[in-house]
Design a protein around this nucleic acid. Structure first.
Length: 723
DNA sequence: CCCAAGGTATTTTTT
DNA sequence: ATACCTTGGG
C-alpha cells in the first residue's frame, strides 16, 4: 500500500499528528486511539516525505514488546527494514551506547548488567560488609532507596539527608554499593540510564555527535517516563532535534515506580513550540464502556483533559455481579466463561483482571475445575529463573573470571564443599587487595591459606572452570551452553529432583540451548556491531524478559493483573475484586494522589474491553487467612448507573454456595448488589447500606440519576428482579 | 551440608 | 493461608 493510501485510512487528528511539521509535538493518545499506528506512520512519513534518513531517527519505548511491534509494523509499511533506524527501549538503547563507549562511561569492556535479583544480592553483601544489622537494615528497603535516587538522577554524592536518622545509613549503603558495582564492573537497570546520561553530559564531542545524528526523536508511553529518562531525552534533543512525545496521562499507573506524569505537562514548557494533538476517537470499545470509563476518570483532578468517543455502537451494559465470597465470585466468572465458550467465543479473547496476584489462585482453581484452558501472565520470567541464571553465571565466569557476581552465584553450585566461612575469608582478602574473588581464590590456593579440605574444594572448582574454558573454546554459542549445562554438573544437580519442579528446571535448561541457537541465528542479522556474540547474548538475557518467545498453542483465557493488561485488548473483560480496600488498594485510599492512580488503573482495566465488561465484587473475602468484609469499590459509584446492570449467576443448588448460612441481608431487607427501583429516580443498584433502624441509609447507583444516599425509611424503594 | 521449625510480611513490577 | 527466609540442631 502506498503511503498516501495509509494516510487516507487515518482520521483527522491522526493525520495531523503524522503529517505535523518538523518541530516538537505532544500527542495525547487515548486508549485504543491508534497510537502505534500513528507512531509508525509518522516515521514512514518522515522518511518518505521529508526525506529524512532512518539513520537520523530514534524511537524509544518502554518494553521490548512495544519496540518489536513498532519495528515489525514499520518494516511492513516501508516494505523493507529501515536500515540505521534506532528503535528500542530506554534501557536497550542506553545499553548499546554504553557498550560502544564503555571507556567514556568509565566501565570495563566486559561490564555486565545486574537484574533486580542480582542487585539485591549485591546490596546484601554490601550491608554485611559494612557490619550493619541485617534485621535493622533490610536489603529490600535499601534497594528501593537506591533505585528511587537513581531514577531521580541522584548519585550517593548528590543525596542530601539529615545527619541523623535512617537516611544516613541508607546513604552509606548506597555509597558502598556504588563502589562495589564499579569494582565489579556491574551496572543495574537504573544505572544503565544514569550512566548514559552522565556520559553524554560529560563528553561534549560524544553528545554533539549523537545530537547531530538524531534529528527526530519519538517517545512512546511518555506518561511513564521518570526523571532520568526525561532528562536523557532533553539532553539528546538539545541540538535542535524534533521530539514527538506520545502518551496518555489517564493511563499513568507506574507512579510508584518513579514515573512522573508531570513530565507530560512539563513537555510543552521545556520543549519549544510544542504542538499538542489529542487522539480521542476510540476504535476498540463500545460507547457504553467508553462513557462509563470517561465518567470514572472525570473524578480525577489535574488532568490534561480528554474524552474518548466512538463511532461504533452502544453495546451491552456493563454487568455488575455481587458474590458472597471470592470462591463464589470465581465460580460465577468461570460459569460465564464456559457459557461464552459454548457460544463459540474464543478463549483468548477473554481476560480476567485483578488488582493483586494473590487473587489469581481461586480463579485458577475454578477454571481448572471447569476444564477451561487459561494462561497466567506475569510471574517469574524465563531469564530470571534460578537455573537459567546459574547457567548464564558459568558462561559469564568463563568469559571473565573477574565477574564476582557470577563467581558468588556458582562457587558452591552444585555444592562442592565451599561454605560461607571460606567464602567470607576470600571476600575480605579480595577487598583488602582490591582484586576479584577469582584472584583472591587463586592466591589462597597458592599461599596455602586454607585447610587441606577447603583448599582441595577450591582447586576442584578452579580446575573445573579452566577445563570448561578449554572445552568451550572455538564452539558456537549454542554448543557452549550445552557443554556448560552438562559439564558444570548443573544438569546432574537439577536431575536429582524428580518432581514437577525438577522436571521443569531441566526443561528450562534445554530451552536455554534453543534460545542460544535462536539468538545465534538472529545475531547475524543484527546491527549490534562488533559486540561479541556471548556478550550480546548475556545482554539480551538481562534486558529481555524472554516471555515473548513462549507462546502456547491452545487458545486460552488470560489472567493477569490490571497493570499487566495495559496495552492489551479483549472482547470480554472481567475486572474482579471491585472492593474498597482491595481495589482501590487499602494502601492507596488515604492519599489522594495514590487514589487517583488507582482510578487510572481502573480506567485502564475498563478500556481493555472491546464488547463486554463485567465487574465483580465479593461481600466477604478470605485474605491473609482472615475473613474480611469490604464495601463495594467506590469506583462502582462513579460509574453512571445507566451503564450498569446487576446480574445474577446461573441458578444452582444452594449446597454449592458455602455462604448460604451467611446472612447477607440488611435488617431493612435490602442486600448489596440488589436491583431496586425508586419512584422518582427509576431503577438502580444497591451499593452500600449504613446504620440501623429509622436512620439506616442506603446508597443506590441509579441508572439515570447517578449515585445517591437515601434514608431507607423515606426512600420507598421497591425490589426489582433483574437478569 | 541438609532439614525442620519458627518468624514475618503480604499492591502493582515495562527494564 | 502462605510463601519466603533465617536459624539451630543433627
Amino acid at each position: 500500500m502506498s503511503l498516501d493510501a495509509w494516510l487516507d485510512n487515518l482520521n483527522v487528528p491522526q493525520r495531523k499528528a503524522v503529517t505535523a511539521p518538523l518541530g516538537n509535538a505532544l500527542i495525547l493518545a487515548g486508549a485504543g486511539s491508534g497510537k502505534t499506528r500513528v507512531l509508525v506512520s509518522r516515521i514512514a512519513w518522515l522518511v518518505r516525505h521529508h526525506n529524512i534518513s532512518p539513520h537520523a531517527i530514534l524511537a524509544v519505548t518502554f518494553t521490548n514488546k512495544a519496540a518489536g511491534e513498532m519495528r515489525e509494523r514499520l518494516t511492513e509499511m516501508l516494505e523493507s527494514p529501515a536500515q540505521g533506524l534506532w528503535v528500542g527501549t530506554f534501557h536497550g538503547l542506553c545499553h548499546r551506547l554504553l557498550r560502544r563507549h564503555f571507556q567514556e562511561a568509565n566501565l570495563p569492556e566486559q561490564f555486565h548488567i545486574l537484574d533486580s535479583d542480582d542487585q539485591l544480592r549485591m546490596i546484601k553483601r554490601v550491608i554485611s560488609a559494612l557490619n550493619l544489622d541485617t534485621e535493622q537494615w533490610p536489603a529490600k528497603q535499601a534497594q528501593a532507596f537506591i533505585n528511587n535516587k537513581k531514577d531521580e538522577g541522584l548519585r550517593a554524592a548528590h543525596v542530601h539527608v539529615m545527619s541523623y536518622g535512617p537516611g544516613r545509613t541508607l546513604l552509606q549503603i548506597y555509597s558502598a554499593y556504588e563502589q562495589a558495582c564499579q569494582t565489579a564492573g556491574a551496572i543495574d537497570f537504573a544505572e544503565i540510564l544514569l550512566r548514559t546520561h552522565e556520559m553524554l553530559r560529560q563528553n561534549e564531542a560524544l553528545l554533539a555527535h549523537y545530537q547531530k545524528r538524531f534529528n527526530m526523536i519519538l517517545v512512546d508511553e511518555f506518561q511513564d517516563t521518570n526523571t532520568i529518562q526525561y532528562a536523557w531525552i532533553r539532553l539528546l534533543s538539545g541540538g535542535g532535534a524534533s521530539v514527538m512525545a506520545v502518551g496518555d496521562d489517564d493511563q499513568s499507573i507506574y507512579g510508584w515506580r518513579g514515573a512522573k506524569v508531570e513530565n507530560i505537562e512539563r513537555f510543552s514548557r521545556d520543549f519549544k513550540n510544542t504542538q499538542t494533538i489529542r487522539l480521542e476517537q476510540n476504535y476498540r470499545s463500545t460507547a457504553t464502556i467508553l462513557n462509563a470509563a470517561n465518567a470514572l476518570i472525570a473524578n480525577n483532578k489535574n488532568r490534561m483533559g480528554k474524552e474518548l468517543w466512538t463511532a461504533g455502537s452502544e453495546g451491552e451494559k456493563i454487568a455488575l455481579y455481587k458474590a458472597f465470597n471470592e470462591l463464589e465470585e470465581a465460580r460465577f466468572i468461570s460459569d460465564e466463561i464456559t457459557k461464552a465458550l459454548k457460544q463459540g467465543k474464543p478463549a483468548d479473547e477473554m481476560a480476567i483482571l485483578y488488582r493483586s496476584n494473590a487473587q489469581s489462585r481461586v480463579l485458577e482453581e475454578a477454571l481448572l475445575r471447569a476444564g477451561t484452558p487459561y494462561r497466567i501472565h506475569g510471574g517469574v520470567r524465563y531469564f530470571e529463573r534460578a537455573e537459567v541464571k546459574d547457567t548464564l553465571a558459568y558462561l559469564r565466569l568463563l568469559s571473565n573470571t573477574g565477574d564476582d557476581t557470577a563467581f558468588e552465584r556458582i562457587i558452591n553450585l552444585p555444592t562442592r564443599g565451599i561454605g560461607g566461612k571460606t567464602l567470607d575469608e576470600m571476600r575480605s582478602i579480595a577487598r583488602a587487595n582490591d582484586t576479584s574473588l577469582w584472584e583472591a581464590m587463586t592466591q589462597c590456593i597458592e599461599s596455602k591459606h586454607f585447610t587441606a579440605r577447603a583448599a582441595n574444594a577450591l582447586c576442584n572448582f578452579r580446575d573445573l572452570i579452566s577445563e570448561l574454558k578449554g572445552s568451550v573454546a572455538n564452539l558456537n554459542l549454542e554448543e557452549q551452553v550445552k557443554i556448560v549445562i552438562n559439564e558444570s554438573g548443573l544438569h546432574a544437580h537439577f536431575s536429582k529432583n524428580k518432581d514437577d519442579k525438577g522436571m521443569a528446571r531441566i526443561e528450562n535448561l534445554q530451552e536455554l540451548v534453543s534460545a542460544a541457537r535462536q539468538f545465534r541465528f538472529d545475531y547475524d542479522g543484527m546491527d549490534d556491531e562488533e559486540m561479541p556474540v556471548l556478550l550480546s547474548f548475556l545482554g539480551h538475557a538481562a534486558l529481555e524478559s524472554g516471555d515473548t518467545q513462549a507462546s502456547e498453542e491452545e487458545s486460552s483465557v488470560n489472567l493477569m493483573t490490571l497493570h499487566a493488561a495495559k496495552g492489551l485488548e479483549f472482547s470480554r473483560v472481567f475486572v474482579v475484586g471491585m472492593e474498597d480496600g482491595l481495589f482501590p488498594s487499602r494502601r492507596s485510599i488515604e492519599e489522594p494522589s495514590r487514589l487517583e492512580e488507582e482510578r487510572r488503573l481502573c480506567y485502564v482495566g475498563m478500556t481493555r474491553a472491546k464488547e463486554q465488561l463485567v465487574l465483580t465484587y465479593a461481600e466477604v473475602r478470605r485474605q491473609y487467612g482472615r475473613e474480611e468484609y469490604h464495601r463495594p469499590s467506590r469506583f462502582l459509584a462513579e460509574i453512571p448507573g445507566e451503564h450498569l446492570q446487576a446480574v445474577r449467576g446461573s441458578v444452582r443448588s444452594h449446597s454449592h454456595a458455602p455462604a448460604t448460612s451467611f446472612n447477607s441481608q440488611h435488617e431493612s431487607g435490602f442486600t448489596l448488589g440488589q436491583a431496586v427501583s425508586h419512584v422518582k429516580f427509576g431503577p438502580g443498584i444497591v451499593l452500600d447500606i449504613e446504620g440501623t433502624g429509622a436512620h439506616a441509609r442506603i446508597q443506590v447507583n441509579f441508572a439515570q440519576s447517578g449515585t445517591k444516599w437515601l434514608v431507607i425509611a423515606y426512600a420507598n424503594l421497591s425490589s426489582v428482579e433483574s437478569v
